[in-house]
């Protein structure tokens, strides 16, 4: 009850908190998406602008998030509490355990000293600490997880039983895995000349490698397609004059911005052509501002 009263008493949201801000954000997102896709035509100033803004905003946002999620709560606030406690009279009965934070704080500062040549050697301490602790904790675990576990599975019987019964697909899978491991490892044995049986085994290993690379490539293409599909879906939604409840109305953003972006790209290209010549992306003149298309 009190919450609903508070909500009623709260002032209405200003434009940057309300629907207008969402619509503006949507238009900016559509505009920047289109500007970034102009690279498909060729490198151009509009793409460069969108790219630089994107990189700048992303890094600014990341820095802000890192400050508020890590640096401030984990380092600055404990230190400020420590300083307050130390300066208070009488001092606390139990000593604070936050003094050890000085070590990572100093190591972090040392890393930044790479920009100051006279003291850049101190950054090696930080890197030595990171490399040392990471190697110390992860090397034994890596050997266990990626070597022992995998090898021990290979040493098991390839006959697979599921719920007590013989599994044909499971056994076939295990046999193929075993064959793949043996043949691929043989391919990488260079101390024996690859002829006769060794050659046949190594060539079989190559087939397994090709299948693995093919599957990897197929999945990679699928992943990239998924991202492209989502972006085009976003542009299609942005071309509509209405939106589902709770989402901002795009007001035909794509339909308005598409011709504008395309027109701007060609206008900029026209303006960047050297006077009295036939420039353009297809036949860039020497000294032209228009960069050659990327292959």
């Amino acid at each position: 009850m009190s919450l609903s009263l508070l909500a009623q008493a709260a002032p209405p949201p200003t434009w940057w908190e309300g629907n207008a801000a969402s619509v503006l954000g949507l238009w900016i997102a559509v505009g920047f998406t289109l500007a970034l896709y102009t690279f498909l035509y060729h490198d151009n100033p509009l793409f460069k602008f969108a790219e630089h803004v994107y990189v700048g905003v992303t890094n600014g946002y990341l820095l802000w998030q890192a400050w508020y999620s890590s640096v401030k709560p984990d380092l600055v606030q404990p230190f400020s509490r420590l300083v307050r406690q130390a300066s208070s009279a009488p001092p606390p009965l139990e000593p604070s355990d936050s003094w050890w934070l000085l070590v990572p704080a100093l190591l972090s500062l040392f890393m930044l000293l790479r920009f100051y040549p006279k003291a850049s050697w101190l950054s090696r301490w930080s890197f030595a600490f990171i490399v040392g602790t990471t190697a110390g904790t992860l090397i034994p675990l890596t050997i266990q997880a990626q070597l022992f576990e995998q090898i021990s599975k290979m040493l098991e019987s390839p006959v697979v039983r599921e719920a007590g019964a013989f599994s044909f697909t499971g056994t076939l899978n295990a046999l193929l895995t075993l064959l793949g491991v043996v043949t691929v490892l043989t391919y990488f044995v260079f101390s024996v000349e690859h002829k006769g049986a060794v050659r046949v085994t190594a060539r079989t290993g190559v087939v397994f490698l090709m299948i693995a690379f093919g599957a990897h490539f197929g999945y990679t293409v699928m992943g990239r397609e998924s991202l492209l599909i989502r972006r085009i879906q976003f542009l299609i939604d942005g071309a509509k004059g209405s939106a589902p409840e709770g989402q901002p109305n795009p007001h035909y953003a794509t339909l308005v911005l598409l011709p504008l972006v395309v027109g701007l790209v060609f206008a900029l290209e026209f303006l960047s052509r050297p006077r009295g010549g036939k420039g353009g992306p297809e036949a860039p003149q020497e000294g032209s501002q228009t960069p050659a298309p990327r292959g």
Binding site: A145, E149, G223
Partner: peptide, 26 residues
Amino acid sequence: VTAVMATDYYQYLATRQVVGIIGGVS
């Protein structure tokens, strides 16, 4: 995982180090 990464982790299925993999949009 994303589709790009899916094939990198199939080796952990047989050893039961991971119980299953959901790969990409598919």
